[in-house]
Nucleic acid binder design. Structure first.
Lengths: 340, 340
DNA sequence: CTGTTAGCGCCTTCAC
DNA sequence: GTGAAGGCGCTAACAG
């Protein structure tokens, strides 16, 4: 019923089965050259003793664990959860296990150091390869392959999965300008990420194509979190000549805008139009439902896992960057600008 | 820029610093008896080489990793995500890291074997202690402490965190009967879990206290997933004398009821009242908003982490079972039964 | 087909 | 205050 005190090691199995340790190891790893009877016997003993080989010892020795590591900046973030969903789906079809690694330090100053530490902790320890989501750090020391989702702007050397950010942001801007908006605020994402940079670029391109001037006052630097989005939105709203629409670099920032708008007595979309980015599930539930860019986050996780597994099989990847298509999901958070 | 080929080991550090391996080890573990200057020197080299000690080797040798393991039946389940939230919050305040373990086999027949395997993989390998959520298996072989969230009905030997299920279910039933409902269907949860058993008990108690007969036809065995909830609801709805209300053992099952009701052309709450259990975030967003029992899932994760850490410090726990209070959250999915 | 031997990277006595 | 040696549990040659 309760837990058994001692760990069962390969040695215990060997003794109980009356064979050598290496024979047990051979059975464990399905090597050839084991007498069927011996094998069966060992299996039985393993079963009876409830033996499981130590991941630590195994990986220390053999550098092959069949475990994929995932390093997340924030495990409970909706974006992470969606990524996880995709990875989980991919993993189920494969002979790999998944270990998700997170750490106590959260949004700390030294987050990239922490990230590096996490990565090297997994690497060459218990993991065959690692997926890193939205890294703050630009480089990692690893022996094993890495695939990055939403890469840092500095690391073109790891295979990466990223959404078609710039184009999507441009589409969103075109939508807003087609509605007549001329003063459009922008709340950016984590500046070290390519996604944030590209979305910002799309914002500027959109302005440009509509013949609208770029006003630095209308641009706020966010970090993809709601709280910061809220703060940014407050600043935007308080401007002498406030925007009639805000394009937030992700949905959570957009939710921050919702909050700021409500507190300022601004109705969405009547007084203020809002567009987000990500299309996390919550964006459909919120009132009014958020118009946003869908970037198939789940798909990004799925794809990244597949790429990593190919890398683990020593396959060459044809690309360095894998771009995921995006599309605008129009819901109820935008309205034509009202005539004066 | 890119990844460096070789792993940096303690030996590399020792050589580069011109000291022995043991000295480096001592510095690593903040042992006394190291000359300040030596220590500083070694630190510098560690920094420069970007050395991180191998989790695998460390745990193999010393049995103390400062890593807590979490084994989940389904990492993307909303319940799990909420638990994760609580654990994450707790972890941040502690000097522990968190590893979440999941595996490719999903809702497999041998799920409990898989679970056991996962647990012993973490145990005595890379983890100081383990939190298990809603286990299918009733026993685990471990050297290190275990804390269970939503325990199996068979394992009273691990410290466990569980909601006040029976009372809460009774409250929900009272609410339904007070609305005049007499034929109330029940969709159960995973039968091996205490939570499911207790909720079922609350259902029966509720019937009893209202002087209503227990009709086996009105009880369906679910598994806490939406798809199954949907199937169960279909069966309930097709009954010759169908229920006017359904109490689902968790919110996801309730969402399955929503789907079945919609397909059958039944309006909620007009034609069918629905009560859920869990109060996952989605339940507030759904239309009509779901009346459900809040069981502070996040709190369960937080508490469990605290308990585990105390166990790791060799503290004695005063209780075996920690019960989390619950309360009914009335929203819009229930209506008084209409008079004929 | 199976046993013996030698480490993987690290921590822990035990000497010096 | 520091180094040398042994071994944690396991796999990978090498013998036999």
């Amino acid at each position: 019923m309760s837990r058994i005190k001692a760990t069962v090691t390969i040695r215990d199995v060997a003794e109980a089965a009356g064979v050598s340790i290496s024979t047990v190891s051979r059975v464990l790893n399905n090597k050839v050259d084991v007498a069927p009877e011996t094998s069966r016997n060992v299996q039985t003993v393993i079963e009876k003793l409830g033996y499981t080989s130590s991941l630590a010892a195994r990986s220390l020795r053999s550098r092959k664990t069949n475990v994929i590591g995932l390093v997340l900046f924030d495990i409970v973030d909706p974006f992470s959860v969606q990524v996880l969903r995709g990875i989980d789906r991919a993993i189920r079809e494969l002979d790999y296990d998944l270990i998700v690694y997170t750490s106590g330090v959260f949004r700390a100053k030294q987050i990239s150091d922490r990230e590096r530490r996490n990565v090297s902790l997994l690497d060459s320890s218990i993991t065959d390869g690692i997926i890193i989501v939205a890294p703050s750090a630009d480089t990692f020391q690893t022996v094993s392959p890495i695939v990055v989702i939403d890469p840092n702007h500095e690391n073109p050397d790891y295979p990466a999965v990223i959404a078609q950010n710039c184009e999507a942001a441009l589409t969103a801007m075109k939508y807003l300008t087609s509605l007549g908006h001329q003063r459009i605020g922008f709340i950016g994402g984590r500046p070290e990420l390519q996604s944030a940079i590209q979305r910002m670029q799309g914002y500027r391109d959109g302005l440009c194509q509509a013949g609208l001037p770029f006003d630095p006052d209308l641009v706020q630097v966010g970090d993809y979190y709601k709280e910061t989005g809220y703060l940014c939105a407050q600043r935007l709203i308080k401007l002498p000549d406030p925007p009639t629409a805000i394009f937030a670099a992700n949905d959570q920032s957009a939710f921050g805008v919702y909050q700021a708008a409500q507190e300022a007595g601004l109705r969405i979309p009547g007084d203020l139009s809002v567009v987000g980015f990500d299309n996390i599930p919550e964006s459909a539930f919120v009132t009014p439902a958020l118009t946003t860019v869908d970037q198939s986050i789940e798909q990004m996780g799925f794809l990244a896992t597949g790429l990593l597994v190919r890398l683990l099989s020593d396959e060459e990847l044809e690309n360095r960057i894998y771009t995921i298509p995006t599309h605008l999901v129009v819901r109820e958070s935008c309205a034509p600008i009202h005539k004066l």
